[in-house]
Design a protein around this nucleic acid. Structure first.
Lengths: 234, 234
DNA sequence: TGTATACAAGTTGTATACAGTATCGGCAGC
DNA sequence: GCTGCCGATACTGTATACAACTTGTATACA
């Protein structure tokens, strides 16, 4: 799944993870050239593991690889954002359905989601608005991973997991809208409630709605300020 | 897309393509150990491109990679077959909808699918039943690629393309049922008709039905004869 | 006889040297 | 002043050598 768990750690793994994180956080802006030698200097590993990391990132779509020219951090276009969210809207409601069924059959899982539901509620009530968005996104991340973990179908699970860095990067490249956080908390509460009620259709609808609102917000923000490293060609 | 088109051809590409084909055809049975040195002897390339090919195959799920032990051709379980078809049933109707819309807007594409529709019809009428299944599968392959090519969403397109080798392998590992071919031709005709009529819902339903029938056939055949390299543990 | 340990073979992980190719600069010619 | 050629440079693609680890076996010992 490559997500929160950290395995043994070959150098290729380490370089991969480090680059992935930096791309996700926007520290490596879209279009940044990633020469193998530069990465060798930067990471201390030799070319072989660096190469492997780059190939993996390319397979995940985080890096564009041109055969005899080199690698660059993949660019983000309006079209790619649309494609990403359309695809997520296809996959994630299905995952939500599976998670709902899994929770209905597993008290342990229900406890987990109940706890998260309470955390979401607490976030909006108790956390000062300064730190609120950070706390919220950290929590939303854990929620996403919980859904992924509760997804039975392996292909679905892996594919959704692979999309997450793209979404995260988008969030980090565009400016966060504090107002959006309030609404997003409400959307997450609705997802939790439907899931805990065993209402698969409701949960699916809730996440579809959430995705639609997220996309709308991103587009609004892009229209306002161009953002750090976004190509608006698409 | 890595499918029918063949690019420049680095050694890593060649090894990757060759192994992929052999796994697809079942010449390399599930569970076969793939030592890097063995592949070096076999392919004439050095370890570096062989390694890269193995990593790529692992990312595609065709090879299982255990960190310090080696690679094996990935095994096929009942559960993995179910997962595969469930996932395809999620993705391919959506692709079919996009292809239908694309065809409605593009006369060139309509001509292509009209031609294919006729070929399907001809297959059942004119081709002697000896060679019929081979001809059919070759045609069905081209149909699949045409759908993939007409799919607008890049994530959807790539994901579906990546699943194809798994399906093909399954077909080649289990015994082909000649009766199934007749029915499958009819299903493809129905898909073509709906697509050409601009009936996205109908096309989506047709492919969903096709997938359901395919899965049922595979399960029937597996119940009958255990097949060549299938684990029935799942 | 059963268990633990040391050894040996084979494998992957990593580093590095070499070869081929694309890019960018300057320079001659028009 | 502009275009086209050509060499230098830097990069990737490939091969190979070395290191670290895992597994299976044989042997010593309780």
């Amino acid at each position: 799944m490559s997500g929160p768990a950290g395995g043994d750690a070959s150098k290729a793994d380490l370089v991969h993870r480090q680059l992935k994180e930096e791309i996700e956080l926007g520290e490596l802006a879209p279009g940044t050239p990633l020469s193998e030698l530069w990465l060798v200097e930067r990471t201390g590993a030799s070319r072989t593991p660096v190469r492997e990391a780059l190939r993996r990132l390319a397979a995940e779509g985080l890096v564009d690889l041109v055969p005899r020219q080199g690698a660059r951090v993949s660019r983000v276009s309006l079209q790619s954002v649309r494609d990403l969210f359309d695809f997520r809207t296809l996959l994630e409601p299905a995952a939500m359905r599976q998670a709902t069924e899994a929770a209905a059959a597993d008290p342990e899982l229900r406890r987990l989601f109940t706890a998260m539901r309470n955390e979401f509620a607490r976030t909006v009530r108790r956390v000062p608005s300064q730190a609120r968005s950070r706390a919220f996104y950290e929590l939303a991340d854990r929620f996403d991973w919980a859904i992924i973990g509760a997804t039975r179908n392996e292909h679905l699970r892996r594919t959704i997991a692979e999309l997450r860095p793209h979404t995260a990067r988008l969030r980090n490249l565009s400016h966060v809208d504090p107002q959006r956080v309030e609404v997003s908390v409400a959307e997450h509460l609705r997802m939790c409630d439907a899931l805990l009620a065993g209402d698969a259709d409701g949960a699916a609808a809730a996440i579809a709605d959430h995705l639609e609102q997220s996309l709308a917000t991103i587009f609004r923000n892009l229209a306002r300020g161009p953002g750090e490293g976004l190509d608006l060609l698409g």
